[in-house]
Design a protein around this nucleic acid. Sequence first.
DNA 1: GTATAAATTGACGTAAACGTAAAAGGTGCG
DNA 2: CGCACCTTTTACGTTTACGTCAATTTATAC
Lengths: 153, 153
Amino acid sequence: MKLVSPGEAAANTNDMSNQAGEELVRIGEMAKKYGVTLRTLRFYEDKGLLNPKRDGSTRLYTRRDKARLKLILLGRKVGFSLRDVKQMMDLYDPTGSNTKQLRLALDKSEKQLARLQKQRALIEDAINELTTSMAAVRQMLIARTAPQASAAG
Amino acid sequence: MKLVSPGEAAANTNDMSNQAGEELVRIGEMAKKYGVTLRTLRFYEDKGLLNPKRDGSTRLYTRRDKARLKLILLGRKVGFSLRDVKQMMDLYDPTGSNTKQLRLALDKSEKQLARLQKQRALIEDAINELTTSMAAVRQMLIARTAPQASAAG
DNA sequence: GTATAAATTGACGTAAACGTAAAAGGTGCG
DNA sequence: CGCACCTTTTACGTTTACGTCAATTTATAC
């Protein structure tokens, strides 16, 4: 079972597909393609988020794995935990309408949105407090730098 | 050496002060007063952020400790790590102008402010992405809930 | 066939700020 | 006197998402 050569991803002289013409990539290429580390891909697999095929012990990522990874990365970006992502993904059923999955996703999204908004408020609070105390510190520094000008008229 | 009775913090019939008239409080009262746990106070001490006196093995918090704790809590609120807080506090010298301390604080504050602003941007990004995908999910749910109306004129 | 590159599993480490349990000493009060 | 409560020290546990070796096996290049 041959694959894409590690050196050249564009080389298609090899048999890099299975019977369905699926492009199988190994972990290195997968990582590069999506800007994650090998460790991350293995970690996601360990957590049940990815399920690459194997050629012996070598992982082979399919189109499905790529789609799933994209979802994982989107989920992470909006602040879902991997557990949340997994929970939602586990509900996916290619033969059904996935209404339950969509409802769960929507439910979790609403909660996450609320969390994000609260976080934003906290951060803005912090920014205000920090700005205020920075002004105070600047004043103290000025008082120490040029105190000789305060006695004059 | 007597103290505030544990049951009543307002009872001032006891000798709860040292020679300077300083009010010494024990860990329980200190924790309640500032809304932190006992563990937190001990943790901060372990990290060198607080230095309560001792009556035998019992911690006695002075006015200075209260001031320091306030600073710690402010620092935490604006997102400084305890290490940062300690680093700044360690520069405090009651006999000097503390110019170095103030400069360090200002420097750290500027960096922290930048971090906070970046975080805020990330969160707003996330909010946007999440809002977008929520709309998409809602559409998919609608398509599954009322597909029978699309065939009619 | 060998050097180099890529891949594997396993397992400990990291960051921050405490939580929690255990076991024991001190203290006021009725 | 003994309960109830406060406090002490020590030390492992928690959380999340990986990082960082390390030792080994496989794959590709020349």
